[in-house]
């Protein structure tokens, strides 16, 4: 069975997520949800001279989607928009390193889908 899903590092991101909250004077705001389980993510960010200078996320979700939000936002913060555009689903999944079943993949991808929406 999936012994490794709730590794300590993932749980730490769940309990104390990085970049959790909302930027009030954000340059972009996106919302994304997963109707299957009612998870939702609210992503806000600031962009300056082609660079993502700040990003925050919040929302209701499971351990997986919250930890994924925490890890992803920390990774892309201070990167250029160009770099972030090159950051694909595969990179994202290898970054979060969670062994996922098909159903849980959707949870993990929630913050990533929100990011894709923001990039549009």
């Amino acid at each position: 069975m999936n012994k490794t899903l709730y590794r300590e590092i993932i749980l730490e991101h769940f309990r104390n997520p990085l970049n959790f909250g909302e930027i009030l004077d954000a340059d972009f705001i996106v919302d994304e949800d997963n109707p299957l389980c009612g998870d939702s993510v609210h992503l806000t960010g600031k962009v300056n001279k082609g660079k993502l200078t700040d990003i925050k996320f919040k929302g209701e979700g499971c351990v997986i989607s919250r930890a994924a939000g925490s890890i992803m936002t920390e990774y892309i913060k201070n990167k250029t928009i160009k770099e972030i555009r090159n950051f694909n689903q595969k990179d994202f999944l290898s970054l979060i390193e969670i062994p996922l079943t098909v159903t849980r993949l959707k949870c993990a991808l929630l913050p990533f889908s929100a990011l894709q929406k923001a990039l549009k």
Binding site: N2, L5, Y6, C37, D39, E60, G61, C62, V63, I64, R104, C107
Partner: peptide, 8 residues
């Protein structure tokens, strides 16, 4: 989230 309950 109930998904985490079920998964654990």
């Amino acid at each position: 989230h109930p998904h985490d309950i079920a998964q654990i």
